[in-house]
Design a protein around this nucleic acid. Structure first.
Lengths: 189, 189
DNA sequence: GTTTTTTGCCTAGGGTGACTAGGCTACTAC
DNA sequence: GTAGTAGCCTAGTCACCCTAGGCAAAAAAC
């Protein structure tokens, strides 16, 4: 019997692609095994369990997103950097809804600390250097930025903007304008 | 054999409470049946299927949240109203994490249109009257507000703020300050 | 107050998915 | 070549979702 050549990496990538196609909630060990022409039991040689698989997809997505954001950010500063970051973030979520969904599972603290999530935080802080915010304002601003991006993308994806005709793209652009304005003029305590 | 007195409403409420205790992903038809001392097959007399149950919990949560926000908003205007809305929203999510998670499934358009979600939108717009924003800025601002609230609560819940010592409460308060500032001074096109 | 209808719950059973134990076989290293 | 190990297998358990069909309790009709 020929071997299928399954590895944890190939499984993770296939799971990510499957997630983008059919939704993360439909990515099962059994479905993945079918894709590889292999019995589901065989996959447990490469992954610990279904949760482990989901964590791997989440880490993959975090890394991919961080890479994308990093290259979008190269050579930019100020509002330019803010917009580039935001568009890279939203673009990734739109192109890879399944991967984006996978990112939302909560990782245990050690895993999270070792993930590309920390690169996100660093890059967000880097943007804020253009706005000259001191701690603790900087942390608050990072959190607000992240909240806005994630919230917008998340609501857009679940159809939260459907009931109003206004295009999401336009609201997104204006939201970034507003975010830039408030970062440039962060309210004093 | 005595009847258990199961109704769709009681099932929905029990499912919501179960969700808050053990997480929405663990709310199963089987678990719910056990709570009522009944066989799982019996529940299908009251609910169509597992998805129907989740939708019911989502609608319940949307209504509860809208009620809570409405009473928090009574008699307030301007930043006062903004903060009251935001705190009611975040408070509900913190007290009822399972219900909040249930709210995130995407409803089909008709169901969403008939849900309490529209009340949320109305109330958000009501707040913005204090800031005198005309369309389409108003829609953009509504979306930004909602994104910020949802994003913050969502990140907080999945532990996105764990790696920085700054208290989430403080960042929340400052985020609301920033939101108030940007609404009061919405950037011109 | 009996009959009829409806309602609420049951048992039985099929389908899918997660996972374990234990076996066989193809590569790898010596 | 032989030993070991890595990759895949079958077989089987358990949980959950859901349907079909039966029976008894409650409600409605007479």
């Amino acid at each position: 019997m020929a071997r299928a050549g399954v590895t944890a990496e190939r499984l993770t990538l296939a799971a990510a692609e499957l997630a983008d196609e059919i939704g993360m909630e439909n990515v099962t060990v059994a479905a993945l095994a079918r894709q590889f022409g292999v019995k589901d039991a065989s996959l447990y040689f490469h992954i610990r369990n279904a949760h482990d698989l989901r964590v791997r997809v989440a880490l993959l997505a975090l890394t991919e997103l961080a890479d994308r954001v990093a290259s979008a950010l190269a050579g930019r500063a100020g509002k330019d950097a803010l917009v580039a970051f935001a568009n890279a973030y939203r673009g990734y979520a739109k192109e890879h809804p399944g991967r984006y969904a996978a990112m939302q599972i909560d990782l245990d603290p050690e895993t999270a600390a070792a993930s590309a999530g920390v690169r996100h935080a660093e890059m967000t802080r880097a943007i804020l250097r253009g706005y000259r915010l001191a701690e603790p304002d900087q942390t608050d601003a990072v959190r607000m930025m992240h909240s806005t991006f994630h919230g917008f993308v998340s609501l857009e994806r679940t159809g939260g903007f459907r009931h109003t005709p206004r295009a999401a793209d336009d609201s997104w652009a204006r939201t970034l304008d507003a975010l830039d304005a408030v970062l440039a003029n962060w309210p004093p305590r």
